[in-house]
Design a protein around this nucleic acid. Structure first.
Lengths: 345, 345
DNA sequence: AACAGCGCTTAAAACGCTCTAAATTTGTCA
DNA sequence: TGACAAATTTAGAGCGTTTTAAGCGCTGTT
């Protein structure tokens, strides 16, 4: 039961057409060139002109057309960001990317990975928007693909180390993070500290290494105990049951990530194990999950804000200062002590 | 210690300039007009021409320039989406919006609410991208603002009922959702069913009404019991303690949302209450949280997919079929029975 | 007298595409 | 074979900006 007028060409509902530069110019009796200069805050126009133009623009409710200006200036002032929209950590990063980008006068284009949109689709989209640089959160593309992409626009890989391709990388030192966790536990008197592994990948390897190295550092070589795990809650539960079945409960368990830690926590608690009284549990990532009162999980924060700032800074160096040699920025993660770790009895 | 060349104008690292329509045209000895027709899949060009153009475009790795084509056609084929990037439910919606938009040949521009980006900033951004329609997830702008916005581009408010402004609305029947929950509990033999309220707002009112109406429908008028609450886990915990302190534990509690339900759950369990043995607990939203094994919360799903499809469909009716009278699309939510509800003993 | 410079302003040519109207080619049929 | 219609192709004028080079009416220097 629609009332269809003749196909109305995309736009508001019977709206007046958007004012253009020309309309502003006509209003003050100047050329579009002058108006353009004023609005872009470029030196040249006199104070008097500036004021008049600004006033006219405001009165008309003028908004420059991104497309037209991108076309003419050959600069989009857009940073493309690939995110996994289901990841709380990415959400955090995006939040800080926004503020960092704004400070340098850039806008963000978000393109999200979903079950039906793979990484190559996302990257296509970002390029179609003529983003000047690409910030990829948790990219899994093979290094050559990224290298190829980097020739079209500077690529900054966040969170994933990519040694093979000459790209900028911003990440936290995962081994160091787990190291801090072990230090913390040892300081609390723990000696039998187990580790529940992640699936596979560079990060997984780094964290595991962090655990092993730290244990050795504390002379706990023969106490090293790595359980099979994965990034899911289910994997954590399984690991928890394995631990219980083994009959040899460690006094502390470090999990690859928070999800896994929570599964672990659930399994142990369900079996009546007091946490942190009998066993301390630590996660990694400082997920929103870990902050829930019912978990209150000790974990490691990846400093979203710092990573975001460095990513944008790296993009700016490429874009505005012409840097061409890749940089790897490794940040120190920070331990977040909450309620699942305690002194041994 | 940077190696700076002369300021290189935004683009890849010493890359060749992007191929343009003209380059493709030159390669096959045709006009840009013909190439444009082929690439946009418009009727006209012969089969032979199509093939040749497609081949040449592929060889050159040609990608049309969004900006230029938007400018020329006065159509961006962009749908602007406002999201709260921290909301798992929005994430779900976005996922389905993507596929729905893709099916009708539109692309999405995501603009996200954060602590430092309020709704008006988000809407500005979306307009600057020349989005043809705006899909607002959980907008809280006053009706007049939205009405004003709607004159610039059709607005579709998702999840929030807006009676005062003449806009399209897509939402689920919140009262019905809570009604289904009560029905479910009554069918399990419950009679003393309490409700923990949300903060304030239209949705809050609807859900509370759903609870009241359903209780009356089952002749449980005098069993109606509404506890003060909010949308947070903390509020749920407080409500749980209130319940415990009152010394009059109901056999079932329905919470405004999952977050709140989880707080409630935690408080009750901590006090040794068996769930669902002694008390059944139900949430609302079907958050990722509710699916965690440690909660396994019975809840209500808002059918993200359906909402997304209807939103895009509504936008298409406005954009491509010129509908001008607003529509309100109310979908039925669906009960998701998990492990926190059980028959009374 | 010629002219470089001043501080400001502007005409006009891009930018890479779409679209209208018109030109050209092809096909059909007497 | 020519006339005419149908099928294909294209020239060229935008779209709303930015940017370049030139111009304004002077003053001051050679």
């Amino acid at each position: 039961m629609d009332d269809l007028d003749s196909a109305h060409p995309a736009g508001g509902n019977g709206a007046t057409p958007r004012p253009r530069l020309e309309d502003v110019a006509a209003r003050v009796g100047l050329s579009t060139a002058s108006v353009s200069l004023v609005l872009r805050n470029v030196a040249g126009p006199s104070e008097r002109t500036r004021r008049r133009v600004l006033k006219a623009a405001a009165e008309l409710g003028y908004r420059p057309d991104r497309n037209a200006s991108a076309l003419a200036s050959r600069r989009s002032r857009l940073l493309g960001v690939m995110v996994d929209i289901h990841s709380p950590f990415h959400a955090e990063l995006v939040e800080h990317l926004h503020t960092a980008a704004e400070e340098v006068g850039y806008d963000l284009v978000l393109s999200t990975l979903t079950r039906t949109r793979d990484e190559s689709t996302v990257l296509e989209t970002l390029l179609a928007f003529r983003c000047e640089a690409l910030i990829l959160l948790g990219s899994v593309s093979p290094a050559p693909v990224l290298a190829e992409l980097d020739r079209k626009a500077p690529v900054i890989s966040v969170g994933r180390r990519i040694a093979e391709a000459d790209l900028d990388v911003v990440r936290t030192a995962d081994d160091d993070g787990v190291g801090q966790v072990v230090d913390h536990l040892v300081a609390l008197g723990h000696r039998s500290i187990a580790y529940v592994d992640g699936g596979k990948g560079v990060i997984v390897t780094d964290r595991r290494r962090g655990y092993r190295d730290a244990m050795r550092r504390h002379g706990l070589d023969e106490r090293i105990r790595v359980l099979h795990g994965d990034i899911t809650e289910a994997a954590g539960e399984r690991a928890g049951r394995d631990l219980l079945d083994s009959g040899d409960l460690p006094s502390a368990v470090v999990a690859y990530n928070d999800q896994c830690a929570i599964g672990l926590l659930t399994a142990l608690r369900r079996a009546g194990v007091d946490i942190p009284g009998t066993v301390s549990v630590v996660g990694y990532d400082d997920d929103a999950l870990s902050r829930l009162a019912c978990f209150d999980l000790t974990t490691v924060s990846q400093n979203a804000e710092e990573q975001a700032r460095h990513s944008v800074a790296a993009a700016m160096e490429r874009l505005e200062r012409g840097r061409t040699t890749p940089r790897e920025i490794v940040l120190a993660p920070s331990l977040v002590v909450r309620g699942t770790t305690a002194r041994t009895r």
